[in-house]
Design a protein around this nucleic acid. Structure first.
Lengths: 161, 161
DNA sequence: AAGCTATTGCAAATGAGATTCATTTGTTCT
DNA sequence: AGAACAAATGAATCTCATTTGCAATAGCTT
C-alpha cells in the first residue's frame, strides 16, 4: 500500500538524518496522507485530536511540518493574508492553483507547457530553480453565480414585491 | 513627468473614493515611485524617515500601502517566510520573479506565453482571475559561483598551504 | 536497564499586521 | 475666513501565526 511505502521512506529519511522515530511524526504523516490534499496547521491539529483523543501540541505539528517539507512529502502552496496552506505532494505531478478569494476554494491544474517555459526562463538567467509557486487569485464560477442572484433580488418572474 | 502624472491619477482616485488628499499619502507614493522597485514596509518607513526627518507611523504606512494596492500602483509579489515584498508596478507590463533564496536577489522576467497559458486555464475552469503571482525560488549564478569557491579552498595553482 | 540525546509540550516570546481611540487635519458650507 | 463635520493620523494595544527556551519524557544504543 502507498501509505506504508511512504512511511517506510520517511522512516529511512529520519534515520539518515539522525532523527528519532516517534509516534507524533507518524501520526502527522498519517493524517496528511489520508485526509489532506490541502491543509493548514489548524487542520492537522484537529484531525489528530479527533483520531487520537489526544491534543497534538502545536509546536510539534509545526516542527514536523517543517521536517516533512524537507523530506519532500508536503509543500507550501498558498500564502494568502496570514494563512499558509500546505499540500500533500507525494507522487503527484507538480501543479498549480486557482484560489477563489470569495469562498477559498482551491482548484488544481497542471499545464506542462508552463513548467517548460519556467525552465526556459531559468536557463536564460542561469538560475537553478528549487521550487516554484503559481497562484492565480480570482472568483470561481459558483461564487459568480451567487453574486448574480444577489444582484437580481426581485426577478420579474417571482410573485411578490 | 511620469511621477507627476501618477500623483495626479492618485489624487483623482482618492477623490473618487471620498478620501482626503494628505501629505503622508503623497510622501509614501513619492518614495515608492523614486526608490522602490521592490520593497517592504520597513523600507518605506526608513526612506520616509530619512527624507522627512520625521518618523512615518507604521500604521499609516500599512494603511496607505493597502490603498495603493487598491489603486493599482503596487502589488504584493513575494511571500517568503513571514516577509511580504511589494513592487511598484505603475505602467510596467506584468511580470514574474526569480527569487534567490541565498542572497534575496530578485530577478524580474516576462514571458508573455505564460500569461496566455494562464488565461487559457482560467477559461477552462470558468474562473475569473483578479491577479496572480508566480515565484520561482532557487539559487542565482552569483551565489553558485561563491559556493564553488568555498568548495575549493586550496586550489593547486596557489602557492602556500 | 542505564545512560545519552533528540523530542515533546507548555508557556512565553516574537513579529507582521490590524485595530482602537483621542487628537489632528482636510474639506465643505456659509 | 471660520465653523462644522468627516476622515486620517499616531501611539498604544491587540491579534494571530509561528518560533523558541526549557524542563520533563521517550527513543535508541550498548
Amino acid at each position: 500500500m502507498q501509505l506504508e511505502t511512504l512511511k517506510n521512506q520517511f522512516e529511512f529519511y529520519l534515520k539518515q538524518r539522525g532523527c528519532k522515530i516517534t509516534k507524533s511524526r507518524f501520526d502527522i504523516i498519517d493524517v496528511i496522507a489520508r485526509y489532506g490534499s490541502h491543509f493548514e496547521i489548524e487542520d492537522l491539529v484537529n484531525w489528530i485530536t479527533q483520531e487520537n483523543k489526544k491534543i497534538a501540541s502545536r509546536s510539534t505539528v509545526y516542527r514536523t511540518v517543517k521536517l516533512l517539507q524537507e523530506f519532500g512529502a508536503i509543500r507550501e502552496v498558498i500564502k494568502l493574508n496570514n494563512r499558509t496552506i500546505y499540500e500533500f505532494i507525494a507522487g503527484k505531478p507538480h501543479h498549480e492553483h486557482l484560489v477563489c478569494v470569495e469562498c477559498g476554494k482551491i482548484i488544481e491544474f497542471n499545464k506542462e507547457k508552463i513548467e517548460e517555459l519556467q525552465e526556459e526562463v531559468c536557463k536564460e538567467y542561469d538560475f537553478v530553480p528549487l521550487n516554484h509557486r503559481l497562484e492565480i487569485f480570482g472568483i470561481c464560477s459558483d461564487c459568480r453565480s451567487k453574486k448574480d442572484e444577489n444582484r437580481k433580488p426581485a426577478p420579474v418572474s417571482k410573485s411578490d414585491t
